[in-house]
């Protein structure tokens, strides 16, 4: 069987030329993708955010009634502030099951999540429904002017034994 002959032309692309163009093409593609991804990544760091600050002052301890769950900061900061006989602590309003916002039911003295029915005591301890662990607490302390200072960047989880940390609970003498 005779081998087929390919017609040769003057401006045929050589193997070397072809690979050069492939390299240029892929480099261009990679650069374009890299640029686009960088631009997308930039979106995650906005110049200005309208979120409330992570640290805020929550008024004076005297404004909080004993054994009451206070909902005044729920809307703005996503926290409940609870005072018991010994002191004050700050609970996150994020259900530990799948992140819905539970409701505080005064009559039944529990937080109840509308998504899958998880229930928590006013301490944040989970006792019904599927929530695997208690609500998280935030760092709480006093500012210089005597107000309660809350820092949402620091979380305390009961199951890790972090509720024993003094800054998870504001002791009132």
């Amino acid at each position: 069987m005779p081998t087929p002959k390919f017609p040769e032309s003057e401006n045929a692309i050589t193997r070397r030329d072809f690979f050069n163009w492939v390299v240029v093409g892929w480099a261009g593609f990679a650069a374009a993708m890299g640029g686009a991804l960088t631009a997308i990544g930039r979106l995650f760091f906005p110049n200005i955010t309208f979120e409330p600050p992570q640290q805020f002052k929550a008024g004076f301890p005297a404004e909080y009634a004993v054994n009451k769950v206070d909902e005044r900061f729920k809307k703005r900061y996503g926290v409940w502030i609870v005072r018991n006989e010994r002191g004050i602590y700050c609970l996150s309003t994020v259900c530990t099951h799948l992140g819905c916002t539970p409701n505080w039911l005064e009559g039944e003295a529990k937080f109840k999540c509308p998504c899958h029915g998880s229930g928590f005591y006013s301490t944040g301890i989970n006792f019904e429904g599927p929530a695997p662990r208690p609500l998280e607490r935030y760092r709480i302390g006093r500012s210089e002017d005597g107000q309660i200072a809350i820092d949402k960047t620091v979380k305390y989880q009961f199951e890790k034994g972090q509720w024993n940390d003094p800054s998870s609970f504001l002791e009132l003498a």
Binding site: K74, K75, G78, C100, T101, C113, P114
Partner: peptide, 9 residues
């Protein structure tokens, strides 16, 4: 609204 979940959701 992240802080208000419809009940039931």
């Amino acid at each position: 609204n992240p802080v208000e979940t419809p009940n039931p959701s």
